[in-house]
């Protein structure tokens, strides 16, 4: 903790911002609503779980059931943007896929119009073994002296230094973007509020 959560929070923010900018993304999200997709990027120590609604929520959980799971390398993620490539990627064994093919296709379709630079988003965390160790939550481990020292070192850097330095950037960004999106006062929000008011009025 919380480096993996930090990465996922930054990625989730970037994805949703891109989705927001694309007026047609709502349309492409629709077939995915309520679906879960788990992607194991080979260079990353933990799988990413995408939960779709009218936006994308990213989870770091390995246990819950998903509709579809994929395993691929970072460079292949880019090729996922082309639906027609999926079959070929599987044949070439660059992509392994289990579960609902439609979910994978809809996801690919969603990515198509998004110009997301996965490598940039993820690469600084790749091979972050330390982060991986800290993610071993709820796994009881026998702690010998060496591990104890390692944990101490880790906690110190986690708690005292690394966290704050890392935390400032994406979180400040998140705050800022929240403010921006609030200012934008986009139609969807307004509409939702209006619907609510109408419902209240109708209910009375």
């Amino acid at each position: 903790m919380p480096a993996p959560q930090l990465m996922v929070s930054a990625l989730e923010l970037a994805l949703n911002k891109l989705l927001h900018l694309d007026p047609l993304s709502g349309h492409r999200l629709q077939p995915l609503a309520g679906k879960r997709l788990r992607i194991q990027v080979r260079e990353l120590p933990w799988p990413l779980t995408f939960a779709f609604s009218d936006q994308v929520d990213l989870l770091l959980d390995e246990d819950t059931e998903v509709d579809c799971s994929m395993s691929l390398s970072l460079s292949t993620l880019k090729d996922m943007q082309d639906v027609s490539q999926i079959g070929q990627l599987i044949q070439q064994q660059r992509l392994s896929l289990h579960g609902d093919m439609h979910t994978a296709q809809s996801f690919s379709n969603l990515l198509k119009e998004l110009d997301i630079d996965w490598e940039e988003q993820l690469s600084c965390y790749v091979g972050d073994v330390l982060a991986h160790q800290t993610l071993q939550f709820f796994r009881s481990a026998r702690i010998d002296t060496r591990q104890r020292l390692e944990r101490l070192r880790q906690m110190l850097s986690d708690g005292a230094l690394q966290e704050k330095k890392l935390a400032a950037h994406p979180l400040a960004l998140e705050d800022f973007s929240e403010q921006v999106s609030q200012l934008r006062g986009d139609a969807a929000r307004f509409e939702a509020r209006l619907t609510q008011l109408e419902q209240i009025k109708a209910g009375k």
Binding site: P2, Q5, L59, D61, E65, E163, A167, A172
Partner: peptide, 24 residues
């Protein structure tokens, strides 16, 4: 909350959700 925890409370909460196993 943001000020006092320097934003880290968001990550604590995120971790909580990751451990929730919640499903549709």
């Amino acid at each position: 909350n943001d000020l006092l925890s320097m934003g880290v409370h968001r990550l604590w909460k995120r971790f909580t959700i990751d451990c929730s196993g919640v499903r549709p």
